[in-house]
Amino acid sequence: MAAVLDAGDIGRALKRIAHEIVERNHGTSNLTILGIPTRGAFLSERISAILAEIDSPVPHGTLDITLHRDDLRLRPPRPLLPTVIPAEGIEGRDVVLVDDVLFSGRTIRAALDAIGEIGRPKSVQLAVLVDRGHRELPIRADYVGKNIPTSATESVKVLLSEIDGDDLVEIVTGS
C-alpha cells in the first residue's frame, strides 16, 4: 500500500482543475457540473464550490450510470444511486463530468449514454482525480488531477473525507 496523494495534494489538484475548466470554457456561464456517484459526486461538489469562489456559481448535479452499464449481467444487481439534474437541464450546456478514477473508460461510456437519454449538451468534458491507464475504449479525460501509472494487479483507492473520514489516494497491490 502506498499513498500517492494526500489531502493537500487532492485540494491543489481540484483547484487547478477548476481553473483549467474556467480557462478552457472562457468563464462559467454555460457550464453544468455532473458528478458520478459515489465519490465523483463529492469531487464535483468540491469543484463547484471552487468555481463559485474563483468565478461564479454553476449548476451542479449527479448522474447515476448503473442502468447503462455494460457489465450488469456479470455482477449481482447494484443499488441505484441518486441522479439529480439541475433545473435548467443539460440541453445546449457545456457539461463537465466528474469521476474519481479513470480506468477502462466503461463508466464514462455509460455516462455518455445516460446523458444522451436526458438531452443534447453542446459539449461533454471529463474531469478525473486520477487517471490510472488501461483504457479499453477510445476515451480520454480533459482534466486530470494526477496520472498514476499502475499495473493491472494494482488498484487505486480514493478516500474522501465526506464518506471515508479522510482525504487520501493510495495504490493497493493485489486485488
Binding site: 447515476d64 442502468l67 447503462h68 450488469l72 443499488p79 441505484l80 444511486l81 441518486p82 441522479t83 439529480v84 439534474i85 449514454d113 437519454e117 436526458i118 438531452g119
Partner: peptide, 23 residues
C-alpha cells in the same frame, strides 16, 4: 426498503426526457 429506494430513483429518471432505459 431497497426496492422502494430503487423505485424512487427510477421515478426521478423517468421524470426526465427519457422513459426508456437499456438495462
Amino acid at each position: 426498503i431497497s426496492i422502494l429506494d430503487t423505485a424512487e430513483e427510477l421515478g426521478k429518471i423517468s421524470d426526465g426526457a427519457s422513459k426508456k432505459l437499456p438495462t
